[in-house]
């Protein structure tokens, strides 16, 4: 039953079925969408991490693959992103720790030239949930903006996200400029096309395939 619902939710993400009210896609009219299914799964006590990994990411992966094969186009990705956001809105409170005191601050942003923000927003949600203060600079963030933010928030870490093989190249200069201001500032990087090898090459302090592993690293690291 639960597995059926997770499968259905993955389909809603892939096809961009936001909620029961939306008329798109035409063949799914009147059916529950990403919003309702996520709500129901949470009410059935399904782990939010499972909803994320077994449904939302699966649907996103599928539409991404179709796009890669020329079977889907940007409008399809945009509608899938809308469905993803509708689902994420329900997950947010579950990732919120409500902790009054922050463990530290991270300045987060998607790098210059890149508009993908779903991954970055997930990092934000998970980090806030784990008790970190997140300063979200949004998408398409220039080196100057990161540096300005580091300057006005001394002691913060920086988290960079990039989803394009072209924009990941902007991570090097950004890391460099942040380090020029203060060599002690930790810079962490993430995003689908990245690797630890790339991270080492640009002189960043760590690559993490998902926010959970970054949080784990920060929590075990002696301060």
């Amino acid at each position: 039953m639960m597995n059926e619902k997770l499968k259905l939710l993955a389909i809603c993400i892939e096809r961009g079925k936001v909620d029961s009210q939306t008329s798109y896609p035409p063949d799914m009219q009147g059916q529950s969408g990403a919003s309702e299914l996520t709500r129901e799964l949470l009410d059935e006590d399904v782990d939010p991490n499972d909803i994320l990994a077994k449904a939302l990411m699966v649907g996103m992966q599928r539409i991404g693959d179709k796009f890669g094969n020329g079977q889907a186009f940007i409008p399809d990705l945009l509608i899938a992103a809308k469905a993803m956001y509708a689902a994420m809105a329900h997950l947010k409170p579950y990732f919120d720790s409500g902790a009054a005191r922050h463990k530290g601050t991270i300045i987060l942003g998607t790098v210059a030239g890149d508009l993908h923000d779903i991954g970055k927003n997930l990092v934000r949600m998970v980090m806030e949930g784990d008790g970190w203060k997140v300063i979200d600079l949004g998408t398409n963030v220039s080196a100057e903006k990161f540096v300005d933010s580091v300057r006005s928030n001394p002691g913060s870490m920086v988290g960079l996200s990039a989803l394009l093989t072209t924009t990941m190249l902007n991570m090097g200069p950004i890391t460099q400029k942040v380090k020029e201001l203060n060599a002690e500032t930790k810079v962490f990087v993430g995003g689908a096309p990245l690797s630890q090898q790339f991270c080492d090459k640009i002189g960043a302090d760590g690559y993490f395939p998902d926010p959970q592993s970054l949080v784990r690293h920060l929590n075990t690291k002696p301060n």
């Binding site: 094969n69 020329g70 079977q71 186009f73 940007i74 409008p75 399809d76």
Partner: peptide
């Protein structure tokens, strides 16, 4: 344009 099985299409379709 990109090459697809259904002829050329832009990223927006």
């Amino acid at each position: 344009f990109n090459l697809t099985d259904g002829g050329v299409r832009t990223s927006m379709g």
